[in-house]
Design a protein around this nucleic acid. Structure first.
Lengths: 248, 248
DNA sequence: TCCTTTGTTCTGACTGGTCAGTCTAAAAGT
DNA sequence: ACTTTTAGACTGACCAGTCAGAACAAAGGA
């Protein structure tokens, strides 16, 4: 009753046994157990509805231990977030870099990042859920932490978009911050929905759907600019080639 | 201090004064005030962290009134959700229908729905935020309510996608449920992010970005199927015309 | 091998405060 | 006459955080 799930991918935790050689003081292990217990409980019930006693129980330690290792419930939560989302950013970065190293385009990199995002979420659904649930809340002390953490993940996506625009692979009229956040959101929600409501689908199914969306195989031509008077019921006009506009 | 915001679009409320003729018993008004107060508070702080006393205060009524109108805090919350999301589904439906009536294509309809979604969220950010924060939580009593409410909104998107496939406007190899949920997520997160982190942008900016994404003006060709060996750094291959596959 | 010592880590009963939900007698409102 | 709202005291449960001491390790000492 200690090990519990939280999914593969190191389920939102330490990442690397903190430096220390062999006998890495018990603390590290205890903190790990607490993270794992907390992430699932908070994802299920929310921060306020989860009690410190529950977390301690689930982790198999006494309540006092929580307070020996973290200064407060809040602190535990913030460290949890930092720890977890850093892993996501790292995994996105890695996906992009690997793609480049193999000679892929920026667009390949975006696609690889979508996949990495899906894999990550599949591995740590609780963490993701918790992140989404708390990200847009105002009036909460951890707002700053979340914002910075969000920035770190989005920065990776934005940098790939920016490269793509610079090299002419992507049309330069895209709005980088907005596009990055939309992409991020698309993956986030699609993945959560998949896990919650259509768990029988495979990652590949989901990935394929998102790729198609990204490639415009869904919303082909038409409606180039918002509020364009809709063309008559005429079939598809094959216009709207993706690509560069006025790029170098 | 009673009227508060919650935004235009009837800010998540009654929708239509419940049947009753002219003097629609005060209750309707009181419930409305309570909904408005609750939606903002819960969006900011979360369900558990929001107290009934706060809600009553903000609505300008006595605590007893809350319990005269709703059987519990939970009940108030569930009615709130139902009420609000029904409005979203209605607004999406309306956007699609209007587009058709004006001779637009299914793709125009999707675009109009994106716009309707953005407008709705801009008008009721709190409701949206609260919805996103709670949707994927397991172990909460209102899970069923949320699920059904989600279904109702997605059904609208799915029906448009299905029509598009039937008429050949959309490639028939898209996965309708997954695509619908990804679209929904894209709009949801982009809108929340916009409100939270880039509030200076206009709806049109956001809409334009999403439209481009939908039309494949971002992720042009390449990576047609997940795991395609990335083509060399070669520039864009203008392939990937959206459209029909084997449709009639 | 079996203590002793010393610092670290863990324990769980306890405290002080908070909150959902109840209740009443009276006042509005229609 | 009937419905709805009021003010707020009260209760029983629940919970974050504390604290004095127990259990554990590592390193000697005999």
């Amino acid at each position: 009753m200690t090990t519990d799930h939280t999914g593969g991918r190191g389920g939102a935790t330490i990442g690397a046994a903190p430096a220390a050689g062999p006998r890495a003081s018990r603390r590290a292990g205890t903190r790990r157990k607490l993270f794992d217990a907390a992430v699932t409980l908070i994802a299920e019930q929310g921060f306020s509805a989860t009690t410190v006693d529950e977390i301690a129980d689930r982790a198999g330690v006494a309540k006092g231990t929580v307070y020996y290792n973290f200064t407060s419930k809040n602190d535990l939560f913030e460290e949890l977030l930092r720890d977890g989302i850093d892993l996501l950013a790292a995994s996105l970065r890695h996906a992009a870099d690997t793609t480049y190293r193999r000679g892929g385009t920026r667009i390949d990199a975006l696609d690889a990042m979508v996949r990495a995002g899906l894999d990550f979420i599949a591995g740590s659904p609780s963490l993701t859920q918790l992140y989404v649930a708390e990200l847009w809340r105002t009036n909460r002390t951890w707002r700053a932490t979340l914002k910075s953490v969000r920035g770190r993940a989005l920065a990776v996506v934005e940098s790939v978009l920016r490269d793509g625009v610079d090299t002419g692979e992507l049309s330069d009229d895209i709005d980088i911050p907005l596009t990055a956040s939309a992409l991020f959101g698309m993956v986030l929600v699609a993945a959560l929905d998949w896990q919650s409501f259509q768990p029988h689908r495979s990652v590949d199914d989901v990935h394929a759907s998102l790729s198609r969306l990204l490639q415009g195989r869904v919303g082909g031509a038409a409606a180039a600019v918002p509020r364009t008077a809709p063309a008559a019921t005429a079939p598809p006009s094959p216009a709207a080639l993706p690509l560069p506009a006025t790029a170098p």
